[in-house]
Design a protein around this nucleic acid. Sequence first.
DNA 1: CTGAAAGCGCTAACAG
DNA 2: CTGTTAGCGCTTTCAG
Lengths: 330, 330
Amino acid sequence: MKDVAALARVGTKTVSRVINAEPNVSAATAERVWSAVRALDYHVDLQAGSLRRASGRTRTLGLLLSSIDNPFASAISRAVEDAALPREVSVFASSLDDDAQREEAAVGAFLRRRVDGLILTTMSRSAAYLLPTIQRGTPVVFVDREPVGIDADVVTSDNRAGARRAARHLAAHGHRRIVALIDRLDIQTATERRDGFVEGLTSADSVRATIIDGLHDSEGAERALGELLAGEDPPTAVFGGQNLITVGALRALRARGLQRSVALVGFDDVPLGDLLEPGVTVIRQHPQRIGAIAADRVFARIDGDDSAPVRIVVPTELIARGSGEIIAPR
Amino acid sequence: MKDVAALARVGTKTVSRVINAEPNVSAATAERVWSAVRALDYHVDLQAGSLRRASGRTRTLGLLLSSIDNPFASAISRAVEDAALPREVSVFASSLDDDAQREEAAVGAFLRRRVDGLILTTMSRSAAYLLPTIQRGTPVVFVDREPVGIDADVVTSDNRAGARRAARHLAAHGHRRIVALIDRLDIQTATERRDGFVEGLTSADSVRATIIDGLHDSEGAERALGELLAGEDPPTAVFGGQNLITVGALRALRARGLQRSVALVGFDDVPLGDLLEPGVTVIRQHPQRIGAIAADRVFARIDGDDSAPVRIVVPTELIARGSGEIIAPR
DNA sequence: CTGAAAGCGCTAACAG
DNA sequence: CTGTTAGCGCTTTCAG
């Protein structure tokens, strides 16, 4: 900036004014400054600025999700970016792989970089470690999973109701032997979906439900379902607890040619789910909406909204495409 | 930091030493400092530090891709994050939507935040605007697309050869009326793939190839192919120039029940392409590998590697799953 | 092993 | 309308 000031023959403060579009600079001076900026390919150092700036804001956000590689997370990511763009806020992104240690490390890394706010899919047994951060004025909005031990903004899907709906849907199609393939139970949404699934069945008569939990990826789910299908008294219907699990289930069914005889409902949409044969019936989530709402919340908090924390639930919906409407045999 | 120093009854420099694991601090002093850090939930300000630090490094990277929402980009993203994690580097991510203006804006935003390096899928007619940046010591590694007007590290797929292979594959299965659905030609890979496709056909006899370019999303591709299929002398085979286009083509074929009679080869893999019926034959790219190599290059440059720019081409491969092996009628 | 002083690039506060 | 001075939180340098 000194160099620009020297080249434009003005003081550094004038350069600062021009660059930040502050008033009280004559057009001629401004033009001199701009041409010096162009000549030197100068870019202000925002970080240095925020050090001194009254607000202390860095115009930076931290986004922490399970894995950017998962369409659910990348849709959230995209929505957050889109909300950040017009505000000239840059987004730090980090995949946590549902690992609590990685979560704390990544949150720490972002805090050391003085992000103005955090959007977080937490994995921690307790998110209380973020309390001082919030109190010090760095808002945290939780997405996808409810945090434990902290009262803060949360945006989630309607996990329990969605799973209940899936269970009822399968029972309504005559299924009495249903298996639910569930993620690791240390993931909050997994227990929610399992509970919802169980709730959905209590009203139905004599359904024999098997719950397999601790599944986390496609391969594990495929293997688990494969064993059940090969065993005695195999299920006539499957509930896939998240998108990767549903994909694993699809593969297990396909491998045995059962995709048209065993029913399947997945939680969270699956890419090209409408193009498979049969189409994959899912409880659709709205990750884009979740991301947009979460971004709205952080920015509102950053802008000083200090109302009570809110808990926003984005409804899911059942998309019937065929796989979930397969009728139970006999 | 002053507060921590006061609480631990040491100077700020000692706090700095402890936090940065520098030598020459007694164990007892270090412990006092750590407990003060915990008591205050203190996090160093890395940005303030890098202002004064000799290296000037911010341990920050800028990653600019077409859209994080596309599996190709999110795989790259994931690979870059994984390379950044052990180096304690945080990654700024931004989707550019193949918009040159958005690109320059996002690059500027990251430069103003003093990233140590940039990984970029460029859209600009000329990337020469980055020359001063590179000369000043901020490395830029281009991914996916070759930049124009600048000599810098590039990591791409084997676009031309891959497209050639796709064309030959279809011709070898007897197709003589083939349509290539190509992205906007201002995207470098689109012209490469179109040219490769055409090259692949010149050796084959009397193939009537139609090239439709300017397609950018699934819907556009679906509409374009739909019209061709409904017209006179419809194609017997289709080449999808990128993953979204391939999906659009799949939908167009499905809508007319032609997925088993019209051949299809797509460039870039499609999610669940192996589970569709027929399976989708693709020229598979390796985005994860591209991302990993690109990250390696930036970090090498950041660490002072000033050898000549390299141009790394990651080979593609044809994955035959059925749709591309449909034989031409008659 | 420890701390004081200076200064990184910028903006706030104020003086002209 | 413009410039000067101080200081943001840290690390460098150097002196104890």
